[in-house]
Simulated assay, not measured.
Amino acid sequence: MTNALRFPAADPDQAAKFFEAELAFEADPDDVYRDMQDNNTHGYVLVETRSAEAFAQARIPGAINLPYRDLPDQLDLDPNLVYICYCESFQCNAATKGALALARRGFKVKRLAGGITAWKSAGYPVDTDVQTLAGVSKVACHC
């Protein structure tokens, strides 16, 4: 028996339910970018969950900054929207922590797969605050 099939594949109905549930928790950078190109981002907001310094250095256009470490108990956010959280990359879990904090406050959330690293690797644009960055050293994850 092969290593890959040592554990049998799930029944197709179970697999469909599993993968559908998984997609309920993540958004794809390509889908978000296509929405931006179509001017159709209605229903969700991108949330950068890293620090304000990381947000100033590079962020996805239109994103808001809610650092997960500093989230207040009360947030002035629309409860009808979905908040798509992102951080640095798959190696960072600030988006997961931010999404958890927002979900615990009653908001609908997803996580952007791969974070801003996947976004930039795909060649998609980022915004920066050039004037804020004067004299600031490059920030890595800075969660």
Results as ranks from 00 to 15, higher is better:
Met1Ser: 13
Leu5Asn: 14
Ala9Asn: 13
Glu20Met: 09
Glu26Ile: 15
Ala27Trp: 01
Asp28Lys: 06
Pro29Ile: 05
Asp30Trp: 03
Val32Leu: 13
Asn40Arg: 14
Thr41Ser: 09
Gly43Val: 12
Val45Ile: 15
Leu46Cys: 06
Leu46Pro: 00
Val47Asn: 00
Arg50Glu: 00
Ser51Glu: 07
Ser51Arg: 05
Ala52Asp: 06
Arg59Gly: 02
Pro61Asp: 06
Ile64Arg: 07
Tyr68Glu: 07
Asp70Met: 11
Pro72Leu: 10
Asp73Glu: 15
Gln74Trp: 04
Gln74Asn: 14
Asp76Gln: 13
Asp78Ser: 09
Cys85Met: 06
Cys85Tyr: 03
Tyr86Asp: 01
Ser89Tyr: 02
Ser89Asp: 08
Ser89Leu: 00
Ser89Phe: 00
Ala95Ser: 15
Lys97Gly: 02
Lys97Trp: 12
Gly98Leu: 06
Leu100Asp: 09
Ala101Leu: 11
Ala101Tyr: 03
Leu102Cys: 11
Ala103Phe: 11
Arg104Cys: 12
Arg105Leu: 13
Arg105Pro: 04
Arg111Tyr: 00
Ala113His: 04
Ala113Val: 10
Ile116Val: 14
Ala118Arg: 09
Val126His: 04
Asp127Phe: 08
Asp127Pro: 04
Leu133Phe: 05
Ser137Leu: 08
Val139Glu: 04
Val139Cys: 10
Ala140Gly: 11
His142Ser: 14
Cys143Thr: 08
